[in-house]
Amino acid sequence: MRSLLRYLLKNYAFVLFLLLEGAALALVFNHNSYQKSKYLNSSNRITGNIYQTYNSVVDYFHLNRINKELSEENAWLRSRVENITGVPAINDSLVVTLESADSTYRFISAKIINNSVNKPFNYFTLNKGRNNGIKPDQGVVTGKGIVGVVTHVSDSYAVGLSVLNSRWSISAMHKKSGNYGSLIWRGNDYRTADLTEIPLHVDISPGDSIITSGYSSVFPEGVMIGTIQDFSRPDGENYFNISVQLSTDFKALSYVEVIENQDKPEIKELENIIRDDPMAN
């Protein structure tokens, strides 16, 4: 016993190394199921504040581009509103029209203050959190297309998985035919992702739009994902290999909208009934 103690004291560096390395690896493997760690991510107050401050400085250099994007989105929205209502969207009647419309989805505007595109698993940080009504599992979109899903929330910041993260896939739909598959990012290029599970009989061609299917409660149906860039028919398989050019420019993200699905608790409850039902399996 004493010699063991003496040995440990003599090699305390090795013992300490094993302890710290073990702790680090435990964190890695627990974090992989990404819901567990609550505080040790960039949504906590200190990191959030640092990113926020940094972002408020750097932002001035992108104002030109951000303004242009916002005005383009405004123009697009205005043309949609006009198509829906048939009256010019300048007067106040707009507010009334929207209130009477289907209000399942509520949009919360937020800003991306930290983002990456060049890792195998990319995350983003938002400048709004629980106090602004943001909760985990809400979708994040821009005027151009989808961005990702919120995973961790603190009081005033939130962290989410971007589409450029191979830990999740998105339920996507081929707009022309209505066939759906799943979109997965393979970890190479931030401009393209892969769409699988579109059966061979579907008539597809490069340039076709890919949109969200609405089968998950994260995104509403019809949010733009991208366009088909290229496809092939692999031998002996029933599905196309499609590469999709993403419509969102992940390198230049700034203002985004977080989507709150107000029917989500109800949908979840129903789905849980089916999952727990032994007869359903």
Partner: peptide, 28 residues
């Protein structure tokens, strides 16, 4: 002392991890 080196390595790795949402990777 070696424990200082090991502990400071763990600390700076963990700090970078928290910023880049990759808990434990940089620390290890």
């Amino acid at each position: 002392p070696r424990y200082i080196v090991l502990l400071s390595g763990f600390l700076i790795g963990l700090t970078v991890d928290i910023f880049s949402n990759s808990l434990g990777l940089h620390a290890a």
